[in-house]
Simulated assay, not measured.
Amino acid sequence: MSTTCDIPTAKSQPNNIQVSALLAALPDELGIRFGQKEARHRIVAFLNAACSGSKKWLDANYEMIAKAATNQQVVLQILLWNKPNLELVNGNIAQHYLRINDPRTLIILRDLYVHQDAFKAIREEASVIGYVEKKYHAHHENNQYTIDLIDKLATENGVRVAPTLIVDEKAYVGSASINGTDLASLLA
């Protein structure tokens, strides 16, 4: 199983991500925000609900981030990325049924990760929609502008792989690019 949801290329290396430009263009209110804006550290995470690497990263780091967010050490800003990739199609569909700017969506995202194998096994678009509507009482959201804005931020600033993480002003590509120990030391 792949831990990134793309084939790594020279373009997917962290040094090709225009971090300063991305952060300057990124609205504070965009995406799922967990923690306070005034926190000492900021993590921006480009994730997708059907990406195994996104799941692996969030699963491995969620408890530490939650504790740090409670202590105003970190704010996590999750940008659900509608990445054109066959492996991610169910995540792309689901994002049209999630309130992308609502912190409660983090609960749904974490549950989608728990059931990711079953979720990714669904083959019909209508079945994916039915799954999300029934399981999460979700409805089609008018969030195409937000989805397009996240995609524009990613593509214009060199983000090519999910997950891509920006911790403060440094980019990390792939779920294994920054482990819990390294992340904990950065957030200390």
Rank of each mutant, 00 (worst) to 15 (best):
L88D: 07
Y97K: 01
T4C: 06
V159R: 00
L30H: 08
Q116G: 08
Q18L: 11
W81D: 03
T70C: 13
G130W: 08
N90M: 00
A24N: 14
C51E: 07
F46G: 00
Y136E: 03
I178K: 02
S52I: 13
L112H: 02
R99V: 06
C5Q: 11
N15F: 12
S127F: 00
R99Q: 12
P103L: 04
T164F: 03
Y136A: 05
L86P: 10
Y113D: 08
A45W: 01
K83S: 06
F46Q: 00
A68H: 09
N101V: 05
A21K: 11
A154V: 03
D148E: 06
C51F: 11
I107V: 10
A94N: 05
K11V: 01
I178Q: 04
K134W: 01
A25Q: 14
E141W: 06
E133H: 05
A94Q: 02
R40F: 05
A50H: 07
E141H: 09
N157Q: 03
R42H: 13
L58W: 13
D28M: 11
A45C: 10
E38V: 06
P103A: 10
I107Q: 12
G158M: 05
L109V: 14
D6C: 14
Y113V: 04
V159A: 00
L165Q: 13
Q72K: 07
R99N: 09
D102K: 02
L79P: 05
V128K: 11
V114E: 10
L47Y: 07
T9L: 12
I100S: 01
W81N: 09
I32G: 02
S175L: 03
I122A: 07
A171C: 05
W57V: 06
A66L: 13
L23F: 01
L98E: 09
E29L: 10
M1C: 09
N157Y: 02
I107P: 03
H139A: 12
A171E: 10
L58F: 10
P103C: 04
P84A: 03
P14Q: 08
F34A: 01
E29T: 15
E169H: 15
Q116V: 07
I178M: 11
N179S: 06
D182V: 12
E133F: 04
E125W: 04
A121V: 04
A184K: 15
Q144K: 13
I178P: 08
A171P: 10
C51I: 10
G174E: 13
R40L: 14
N142L: 08
N82E: 13
E29I: 13
P14D: 14
V89P: 00
T105W: 03
L26N: 03
V114L: 13
A126T: 14
M1Y: 11
A154C: 01
A118G: 07
Q13L: 12
P8S: 09
Q95D: 15
T3C: 11
P27N: 07
Y62M: 13
N48F: 05
